[in-house]
Nucleic acid binder design. Sequence first.
DNA 1: ATATGCACCTGTGTGC
DNA 2: TGCACACAGGTGCATA
Length: 270
Amino acid sequence: MPELPEVETIRKQLHSRLKGRVVSDVIIYKTGRETPVGKYFIRQVTGGRLAGVGRRAKVLIFQFDDGRAILGHLKMTGKFLFVDDEYSRGKHDRILFVFTDGTRMMWSDIRQFGYLKLVSDSELQEQMGKYGPEPLETPVQELANRLLTPKTRKIKAALLDQETIAGVGNIYADEACHRAGIRPTRRLSTLNNEDRIRLAKEIVSVLTESLAQKGTSANDYVDTEGEKGGFLSLLRVYGRENEPCLTCKTKIKKMVLGGRGTHYCPSCQK
DNA sequence: ATATGCACCTGTGTGC
DNA sequence: TGCACACAGGTGCATA
């Protein structure tokens, strides 16, 4: 799925199309394990007015003006797509939201890992509160300090942990480590303050640059208009196994770390 | 408390 | 062409 730049791209589009809109219909095509919604959900949501669409970590927050919200997680293959009334339903389409102005938004998810859930104001606060700091809204030193403990933890694992820093996923963890010249297998305890600052700065840089390109479409990520992100060709290590490092020409290596494909340059990442 | 491995799903690409 | 297997932007759980 989408990591922070992709989710934020989607959030902006959703916000500009949905702010102030009132839900007139909810049509459920397919529910699933993670989103076992039914008539109750339809009843609760229909007639609700959206104050806007926010984001915390990789979670989209469809905020109703009465304090309730629908939380939306795309996981690996979730999509929100604006469609017209000619649109014919695709195999993986799950829930269609229709608004009183005629706007139609389809939630679709090939692998069905994603979820939508309706929460109260207090549930929203509680569930969003567990995430670590937002990297694009937090001073670099504070982000760097998040990389102090637990000392024996591998850097890659820390970066993927949403309670350490929110919004970083597999692609940008690898990219940030490469930019900072730090091997993802190292333990946090091996970093000095300068390393942590450099890594934190590179996290911010890579997320910011990717956001400017509307994210990375490595597999099937598309935005709400079905457009791909433009950052794929700017990746330096992710998906570039056996290709030359762009700084030193050494072959990029790929290994499995914590069950995730991990890419690095054996020469410039110490 | 952390680390690992796997489970949740479907689709795609690879090698035989 | 078929088949088996590995792997994919994430997370949560069981087990060591």
